[in-house]
Design a protein around this nucleic acid. Structure first.
Lengths: 210, 210
DNA sequence: GTCTATAATCAGATAGAC
DNA sequence: GTCTATCTGATTATAGAC
């Protein structure tokens, strides 16, 4: 909060700017480590080393390892909402959904999709306690949910599936191990992998009559 | 190995039988804990407590925590091979595949599908070092791979997908988070959940023309 | 083989000087 | 805020008696 005691000075805001920059560096590092090794395998020592500061300094910015992960998830959530906001609004709901899934797959292949263990309870609690994350999740689900229902009404999405099942299936692409599996051995390019997973996601494994 | 020194005695084999029984109890416990919380969150203390023996006794049976997990995975692999061997061999390849996926989904819902972190390197090394596990994995992949190619040849499976992509997609059902997601809130029954995931897996999210 | 007790290690978090 | 050094607790693994 700006006070009357320092109205014309640029120093405080500059300091805060540097602070934000450093915290952004930290969160980016955490994001990459979460994508690479996951929450449990990521150590705070590692984060500090890669950021290039002492562990104690890290704890001046974030109170716990869980808070680090939450910050990374909040950042990823914000990016997802930004991506969705930038989509052409006149496109068909089905195409919006396909764009979102394709974006998630590419993000994961680029090593920038933080993955959380679905079982860690302390981390789930921290995430649930983050109103920014939860609000983002709600906003995202609302938006995707609307597209899903519109897609079903338009006859593009299987109307026999509950919308929530479709929503979760879309979310699950963010931690789909098929991407990593297909990347083992360097046999296929990322473009092929993305299209195959897109195909299995929307068209399934079974043949489609033409 | 039986020796001539104890030909008519039933004692050694009885002892060995009790040993096997205890080890089976241990592996079952590990299997359940792996399904519930995963490898990292499972502690050896916990295993020992649930089996009802001291931790040191546990280490007389298995040399490390990794060995415990490998034993559970070998057991699960054996069950998968048993299930496949029991399938009616005259059924269509596509139906065989569907049966296998359905079996995996039900196993996971019943809390008996051990889940491993795909990132833990020491565990992956232990698994790769287990010839019984690797042989089982090869046998399973061969069997599923043959069905996949036959299914594609018969026009039941999408021929545009590489068989390996289909194989991995099937394997990924063993750790599909959609199952747990849909179970939250107790809104849906297991039967519905299984059919929805079966539908998304084989038919995809998009509508099918009738 | 089973137990109690303990070693050894690692990782999250903090104290206190600067 | 940043650092070095340390604390604390949890966890894997083992020693040694019975």
């Amino acid at each position: 909060m700006t006070t009357l005691a320092e109205p014309a000075s640029a120093r405080p805001s500059f300091k805060q700017h540097m602070l934000k920059l450093r915290e952004e560096t930290i969160v980016q590092t955490v994001n990459r480590l979460l994508a690479e090794k996951g929450f449990d395998a990521m150590t705070v020592d590692e984060v500090a080393a890669q950021v290039g500061i002492a562990k104690a300094s890290l704890y001046k910015h974030f109170a716990s390892k869980e808070d680090l992960a939450v910050a990374a998830m909040v950042r990823a959530m914000r990016q997802a909402l930004d991506f969705i906001a930038a989509l052409p609004s006149q496109a068909a709901p089905m195409d919006q959904l396909r764009s979102v899934v394709r974006w998630v797959l590419r993000l994961k292949l680029s090593g920038d999709m933080p993955s959380l263990p679905s079982q860690n309870s302390t981390l789930r609690a921290s995430l649930a306690a983050s109103s920014e994350y939860m609000d983002g999740l709600m906003a995202l689900s609302d938006r995707l949910g609307a597209w899903i229902e519109a897609g079903q009404a338009a006859g593009d999405l299987n109307p026999a599936l509950p919308p929530i099942a479709i929503l979760y299936t879309v979310y699950a692409r963010a931690c789909d191990p098929v991407l990593e599996f297909l990347r083992m051995g360097d046999l296929y390019g990322d473009d092929d992998i993305v299209e195959w997973v897109m195909s299995t996601c929307f068209d399934g494994l079974a043949s489609r009559p033409r």
